[in-house]
Design a protein around this nucleic acid. Structure first.
Lengths: 250, 250
DNA sequence: CGGTACATTGAGAAATTTCAAAGTTGGTGG
DNA sequence: CCACCAACTTTGAAATTTCTCAATGTACCG
């Protein structure tokens, strides 16, 4: 698994983070997701919440475990990975974050981040002041419910992840990951034929799956050889969907 | 891992579940935890929430994945395990539930249970009508916050679990589990010297750890031989705390 | 006594990691 | 245009970890 990243993978220094700040709140108004996502509903026409937009380049951190943040982070564009950093330097990815995802619904209460987030591609994200968001929720129980639904979904995903890691062999986990990404792409309209964007590196897959790059590499090699799945240059291609379903046995 | 349990392990039939119903709400008033737990706060003096008390014997289910429940379940006495049931019959435990634990904070919204809960020892539990609880939350944002804190804690535990399963070898996971149980026992005052109650069977440990009984058995054997940890008749004993800490590398 | 749940052991098989070393690719500065 | 570098991918072989299969042993209960 990926050891604590080299300098390039982490934000190199506090003074000059690879970030270009900016302050807009109309950005959300132009968002391709409109109000289909929680962040959209939250920002809806009359919220008056001011979102600060930022950008980080691939392989840099959006959030670091332990950071104290007074904002809720929402990914607007690009892919990122949330992960836990283990004491011995290993890391385990928790989930894929892409456009429209709130980095952590929980961060509404806890200023201290309990996990890190690293950009896979270049990432654009918004920071919503926690105070404002909280106030908004306080006045609108429906929003609380929507938020809770989000939390519930994430909890369920976490449980699936636990079951995957605890009870499945690597091939099944990979198949499962691929299918999940395909489904997601489909929902967002990014699925073109049997092809969809998949910018994760083998290292990222290994981190999600709880395995090593080397093993992932061999498994992907097999999938390619067997004409089941191909991955190259950030584009995934499912050649044998039924086979994948069978492998993931879901 | 445990295959879909034999009949005895599951509730044998709908007509005569091994449950003796009863309806009391003063029970919570007499609870040893008072208002230190969320359920206590929730039921606090003036809530007027009516809790139905039930009991199930060891190895029976408290909740089954897919059940539709209009109540929130809280464990009052005994130990239980929440777990995911995989399609191929295997199961993966998610967490230990003991006195004072709400089975799932998420169940406040979702009637459909997304995981199962099985009693490890005999278990007494309360069922709080969701409608009432929800109403209570709606009138008291502080309760929402308390609830959210609970959710956040569980999310964090889930993340730890994911990291454990994905990135640690079985010995480290066992050590980690033991220490967690010890800490928990300590907090509740159940730690006597180096000894504390630990009713989990090797099978349960395997299900939590994502391993097999046989493997667990050998590892526990080693721990015993090396005078690090002993487990017998539901009582655990930590002989070499530092060693365990080192193994869990936390 | 018979049965069920649980713990324990041995031996071989399978999955996965580790170590070591090349091969590729895309971008950058000269 | 070329050399070079960093990030990635690929391969081989040996070492570890963990699982599976197959028995056997043990304690408690009705």
């Amino acid at each position: 698994m990926l050891e604590e990243g080299p300098d390039l993978v982490e934000i190199p220094s506090q003074p000059s983070p690879p970030t270009r700040p900016g302050r807009t709140s109309s950005v959300c108004g132009n968002c391709r997701f409109g109000e289909t996502r929680f962040c959209g509903t939250l920002m809806g026409s009359v919220s008056g919440i001011q979102a600060a937009q930022k950008t980080v380049r691939a392989r840099y951190n959006v959030v670091r475990s332990g950071d104290i943040k007074d904002s809720v982070v929402v990914i607007c564009e690009g892919w990122a990975l949330s992960y836990m950093q283990l004491s011995d330097g290993k890391r385990q990815a928790l989930s894929i974050l892409s456009a429209g995802d709130m980095v952590s619904p929980m961060s509404l209460l806890e200023r201290r981040q309990t996990f890190s987030v690293q950009a896979v591609t270049d990432v654009r994200y918004s920071m919503l002041p926690r105070r404002d968001v909280k106030a908004r929720l306080q006045h609108d129980f429906d929003l609380v419910a929507a938020w809770a639904r989000l939390v519930a979904m994430q909890a369920h995903k976490a449980h699936q992840h636990i079951a995957d890691l605890g009870r499945r062999l690597a091939p099944a986990r990979i198949a499962s990951l691929i299918l999940q990404a395909r489904r997601q792409a489909d929902e967002v309209g990014d699925l073109v034929g049997d092809t969809f964007p998949f910018p994760l590196r083998q290292q990222h897959i290994a981190d999600l799956i709880g395995s090593t790059t080397i093993h992932i590499n061999r498994l992907l090699g097999t999938l390619r050889k067997d004409a089941v799945f191909e991955l190259s240059h950030g584009v995934a291609r499912v050649l044998d969907h039924p086979k994948l379903l069978e492998m993931a046995e879901d």
